[in-house]
Write a protein that binds this DNA or RNA. Structure first.
Lengths: 144, 144
DNA sequence: CTGTGTGCAAACTCTTTGCATAAGT
DNA sequence: ACTTATGCAAAGAGTTTGCACACAG
């Protein structure tokens, strides 16, 4: 019956399709990184974290390529950059409009559940400007 | 009548007092930097900007000292650090609770007038955590 | 094949640090 | 005098870039 033999596992298929529709050539490294990024729900990663994860998964990819790839994905609208902490760039796999917890000390980023925060009374924007985005970061610390 | 001759201009006096009450020795450099920072209302500066400004004002101070001083002022509660853009640290002379515009392209930071923004419906905070701070950044772009 | 992507290493930016010198009290 | 701050230069983290080689179409 199966006249179209499938040689690749499903996550790879998924990644390949996503890359193609973004106009990016599905190379080994991009497929692998997309697989890691988009397989398990929303994630917030630095380039270094993703690089470590790839290495750990037996995918040899250079840090430079991880950076390049993350920026390509960002330009293609598959990722969003978070400016939460100076000195480290976090990439968010959830590109929809939402906000974040940042846990000081642990340097961990978490999504704030949609709809549970409300920003109101936005101020008048200066002449000739428009709002590109509103970012809310709720910084948490350990109690005690 | 004036039995206490005043040899220093007023801004210096002010800076010296501020430094003393923060427990910081009022050195030439600290006095000069405090003068620049706190003389003209609320400001949002990077270390490099302040360094340039000091140099321009004929105050020779090294960039390393500017960084050290900004951190000492921050620890003393005289400044706040803004994490608005990756790769650059902005120091805010307004330590009260308020939010910011960030103009993309120009990389300029502006205060949002107090009370003109309202964050409501803060989400439940995870167990054992408390809110340290809520930061709202309204990112603006030039229209057209 | 042809063009694009990758890896490596070097460059670059921002920031911190160590140590001898200078300044404050 | 005694202590603390400063300047310089070097080190350090994170990120980017240039160029030869490798891979996808």
């Amino acid at each position: 019956m199966d006249s179209q033999p499938v040689h690749m596992p499903c996550p790879t298929r998924f990644a390949v399709d996503r890359l193609r529709s973004a106009g990016l050539r599905p190379t080994r490294q991009r497929i692998a990184l997309a697989g890691l990024l988009f397989a398990k729900g929303d994630r917030h990663l630095t380039a270094e974290e993703l690089h470590d994860e790839a290495s750990g998964a037996g995918i040899p990819v250079s840090l430079a390529t991880v950076y390049n790839t993350l920026h390509q994905f960002t330009d293609a609208g598959m990722l969003r950059v978070l400016a939460i902490e100076s000195s480290k760039t976090y990439f968010d796999t959830n590109t929809s409009d939402h906000h974040h917890f940042f846990i000081e000390g642990d340097n961990e980023v978490m999504d704030i559940p949609m709809g549970s925060i409300l920003v109101d009374g936005l101020p008048n924007v200066p002449e000739g400007m428009e709002i590109a985005h509103v970012d809310v970061v709720v910084r948490l610390r350990h109690k005690g």
